[in-house]
Design a protein around this nucleic acid. Sequence first.
DNA 1: GGTGTTACGTTGGTTCGACCAACGTTGGTT
DNA 2: AACCAACGTTGGTCGAACCAACGTAACACC
Lengths: 150, 150
Amino acid sequence: MDNAAPQSPAGLSTTATWLLNQSASHAARLLNEGFAAHDLRGYHYRLLTALAEDGPASQADLGRRCGIDRSDVVAAINDLAGRGLVVRAPDPADRRRNVISATDAGTDEARRMGATLEHVQADLLAPLSATEREQLTRLLTRLLHHHSRH
Amino acid sequence: MDNAAPQSPAGLSTTATWLLNQSASHAARLLNEGFAAHDLRGYHYRLLTALAEDGPASQADLGRRCGIDRSDVVAAINDLAGRGLVVRAPDPADRRRNVISATDAGTDEARRMGATLEHVQADLLAPLSATEREQLTRLLTRLLHHHSRH
DNA sequence: GGTGTTACGTTGGTTCGACCAACGTTGGTT
DNA sequence: AACCAACGTTGGTCGAACCAACGTAACACC
């Protein structure tokens, strides 16, 4: 969005879908700009954080937990492994699986990216008071929860 | 998102960026499924609606009003023109410009897509009460307005 | 009245997130 | 033993959002 003022996109400006879209895309851009300093992207952060917080897991499991397609997990884990942030080892108990674990460096990076995320979040939510932020979070959570159980 | 239950994406589930992203992507998917019946996509709808509501405009203007890059406007207008929903004519007053106008068919299609949008919107916001919807709209609007004048 | 700057439309890219289909391997079921 | 389901992997597709560059045209200034 290089537009200084997209102003009034016709009658869209009042629709929730438009507002959601714009907000999310704005958030995503801020986030990517932040993550760029780590030379990593959203997928990497999700996976790394999942590993750091919930411990080792198979790729399929990670994909399920992070909402990332199996095939995309492969590439992202490749990246992370290539940087030593993560280790891929065959699961002795099930030879179909790989067990992915975060290394110490990976855990560190997850922490650092988490800090970046919080900073970005603060920027994004700057115009909202604490209670408003909580309101927004609650509303969106309700929305998602409703639709996740389709 | 083919996951029936992405469940708890690590500690992300409480971050506004994550919630925004998920909500928006859900909304976008619903919307695209709806628009698929018209064999058109988001860009087309935005442009068509802008034309139908605010009248003819140059491509650059449209891009600015809809938050779409100039180069992407070209392709979308090509599609719309190829279907007779829109007419592209050189601007006699400024030979750099094309004046894009919605045809009657285009205005009709805009109206139909608008109906689809409302239907999708109702689905999306189903779990929220009227006041909650208004709350959400207000919060997101505040967010966007704040960041648009960076 | 030239000269430089800006705006416009267009072409041709790139990136990122989200998907999908298919294959070979392995594990469980029956 | 035969089948089916899950796993990792390869190799795509798609839409949205961008960016750089070019030629043409309008505008501003001096």
